[in-house]
Design a binder for these strands. Sequence first.
RNA 1: GGCCCCAUCGUCUAGCCCGGUCUAGGACGACAGGUUUUCAUCCUGUUAACCCCGGUUCAAAUCCGGGUGGGGUCACCA
Length: 461
Amino acid sequence: MTTRTRIAPSPTGIAHLGTAYIAMRNLALARQGKGQFLIRIEDTDRERYVEGAVAVIFDAMKWLGYTHDEGPDLGGPHAPYTQSERLDIYQKYAKELVINKHAYYCFCTKERLEKVRQSQLKAKQLPRYDGHCRTLTDSDIQTNLQSNLPFVIRLAVPKDGVTICHDPIRGEVAFENAGIDDQVLIKSDGYPTYHLAVVVDDHLMEITHVVRGEEWLSSTPKHLLLYAAFGWEPPVFAHLPVIRNKDKSKMSKRKNDVSILSHRDRGYLPEALNNFMALMGWSHLEGKEIFSLKEFLEVFSLDRVTKTAPIYDLDKLNYYNGYYIRALSDEELIQRLQSGFIPADCPIDLLPALMPLVKSRLTTLRDFESLTDFFYRTPTSPEFSEEEQIYLSVAKEVLSACDWTKEGIETKLVESVKAKGWKNGPFFAALRLAITGKKVSPPLTESMIILGRDVVLERLK
RNA sequence: GGCCCCAUCGUCUAGCCCGGUCUAGGACGACAGGUUUUCAUCCUGUUAACCCCGGUUCAAAUCCGGGUGGGGUCACCA
């Protein structure tokens, strides 16, 4: 049997870094198992649905280089791949569960539920459904149904026994059934909850490995119970450690930039993000720290996954980004920069000359502008001291006469500094400031050559 | 709080399953030095960890138990 895996993002507006982290691992298993990797959209929460969010997810996956085999955009043998288009399927299976007594109608109002909750809380009991409707008679149910009372369908969780999850990463994890609530399967609006939809779809779509974040571990027994109620063979469940904020809480929008696409827009390379994410909660068997997505997909394995949750470390991402930028050829770097990182007033034909000066100085593509703006914008010159003004006038004199080559410029400049009995440091600092408007800049001589003698002399006025 | 998961340098981790080869290795960061008229790159070095307490054993980062700490989850959200 081939391996079939999936990611099941919710269209809530942004493509989350966590989704990519989960996706690349699922992709790897599917490729290694000569199977398929699919994307399924879990949009059963109508309140959270955001228009256009699905397109954002596809954009993000494409940018990262993850290719799926089945999904809402591609179709496939188990279409549709969007849960809101599968409502009748969930209804059918929920009803089947009701008939087999593994689920039941619940007519409790939100008010009653809230009241029960409050009194349980007050009595220091754990808040949960009290099973009120579990014992309703058939005629009660018929009456309620006929009078159009709103209802949900709940799973009839066994009152005793233990449900054991066999997780290849965590080993056996046991949960007392008595601690599991009678989960809502169908909401009063007719939509399924996550728990029902995920089980039905994973089964119907023949998913063999459910590789997800460990935040799902405590709901796994519910899913296992559902598989048992249906009489289905469950897939392998593996729970990856979650990515965390610096404060060790689960990575969140508030404390981190969790958007994949905003990483792209901030000038990160997909190679860097992939390499960075690969090494969170997993290590290469040969101890490699630099490798491509292709290699990751070939060598990733569940048995080298860590159980401890890693922290998103921007320093390390920056390191990878700089590394991959430096590894690019000048032509490739120009191409990458042209995806939105070259200011409108920067002449395109200037680019080839600029690459050698900026490549080792870019942490992100976005740094390009602040690094090179003095080439195409006249810097505002600061107030120079009297001493500095003397430096500049001497420099101007030398530069108006010397050969306009690296050697020509440098030897003449250094010669006159020496002749005057000055130090190189302050002299070149003043010159740099006058020409680039910055205390720190790309190499001065090379920059002057690119700028041209006229512009340089103009800036020394 | 109940349930569940986890615990090696500041961070990502190797090692743990199959105890000795670990005076615990690598990477990022930080710091120092070298190269560079600045910065960056590059090179060299330094820094820094087995959560605690018991037990098993000739021997424990590695096995067991208990603490402690951190995290996740307890919805008609996923």
